[in-house]
Nucleic acid binder design. Sequence first.
DNA 1: AGGATACACACTGTATACAATAAATGTCAA
DNA 2: TTGACATTTATTGTATACAGTGTGTATCCT
Lengths: 246, 246
Amino acid sequence: MPAVEPKRDTQTLKALLGVRDLVLGGGVGAGERLSEIALAQTLGVSRTPLRAALSRLEQEGLLELIPSGGYAVRSFTTADVFDAIELRGVLEGTAARLAAERGVPPARLAQMKRLLAELDNTFRDRLEDMLFDRYVELNAEFHAALAALAGSETMRREVERATHLPFASPSAFLEGQEDVPAFRQSLIFAQRQHRDIVSAIEMREGARAEALAREHARLARHNLDFVMGQDRSLMRRVPGLALVSE
Amino acid sequence: MPAVEPKRDTQTLKALLGVRDLVLGGGVGAGERLSEIALAQTLGVSRTPLRAALSRLEQEGLLELIPSGGYAVRSFTTADVFDAIELRGVLEGTAARLAAERGVPPARLAQMKRLLAELDNTFRDRLEDMLFDRYVELNAEFHAALAALAGSETMRREVERATHLPFASPSAFLEGQEDVPAFRQSLIFAQRQHRDIVSAIEMREGARAEALAREHARLARHNLDFVMGQDRSLMRRVPGLALVSE
DNA sequence: AGGATACACACTGTATACAATAAATGTCAA
DNA sequence: TTGACATTTATTGTATACAGTGTGTATCCT
């Protein structure tokens, strides 16, 4: 998802979501060229909105321009994925630090705490019973709210952009793994980090807020390591992971 | 400039550069809507490549989508400008830190040192005689090389993107101010910081490299403060500064 | 048989025409 | 005189046609 999703655009949005799903779903391999007319037919849109979507996905980092013209699916190294996660952590950390240093309006802080409480409510006594989808949804909301906490539109835009970099999403390695116990346990830890980040911001502890947010992003890296090292059968279930070469 | 500038595109590139110059040059005011047909006529291109350029500039952060359709020039607050500079510092700092932590191939390091030497060569005994344009050019090269030093394409792309955020460019507040003595003096300080960053990377001092790069970006903020506070007549000479409201 | 050149095909980049929607203006009524 | 509604205008989003260019293949020459 890009920083700001166009709403009413039916055709362009259709193309955007369609191509993204196709690429992340493994419909086209890494490095493969995308034929515009073929894609247009497949997705049921004309070339014009399709090209708009392709251009967008290129700036998003999912596609690359071919020197001779046209677009191809980017191929990623593990370093790319690690760095995308690192970037998200760094940017969210910066947003958290600035929020702490500058202070946030009480209403905003209350909203963050409400999100924390709602996240708590997704947990159950038995870990298997937790409301996983609801957690993923609220988690995305939390991170979006965090991006806006520093105050400026530019900061919000760019932090949210980093959040939607390929493989860097807070829920990138969550979906499709609800039934792995280790993942569910890591969510308890993640929620504790959420609380600590908000607490640090409230207490104006900028450096701590930054460090916590950075470390929080590292959870995604741990999950990635687990998926790629421990159990390669999981790789098929993580969207787009087939695009990672090594 | 976007992260990767399309080369052979004559019409789209023409539109991209044309609109950017028009907006940054003050041809259209902040918040003003951009009429596609009027722009197309002005720039001598058709609407198709123009729309591609507008979409690009929207993701660059210079324009914004109007809910009812079309694009408008974004209006910026001083907070936006500050945060854009801060973001560049943070991202360049991250690139520098990762480069230090991971180590850089000797050839790359040698290239950085060569750039440092060339930057040195732009200075003269009398500060007024320095090769200002050459310095700006080499400075841009230095920052581009720094972005690539961490190793991954994703990191390079995103750092370079931050470098081209509105008002965040390393040379944003340099051009058009060659004749202000205080600015020339600050360049001596900046070049010292360049050396220290490379040195820190070479000695694998990640935290120091990050801190130095962050502080280095602050020079732009100092320059901004100077331009806006001290001498408002300079504001007219800095591209796009008319888009900043307060 | 291998390589180079030429031709044909396919695909992208661009222009323009069309349709749908939002904005603006004018008129009618209260 | 002001407000609301309808009509007209303008502008964007979309589709398609065209042209230029790169790529692949086949044939011919060495």
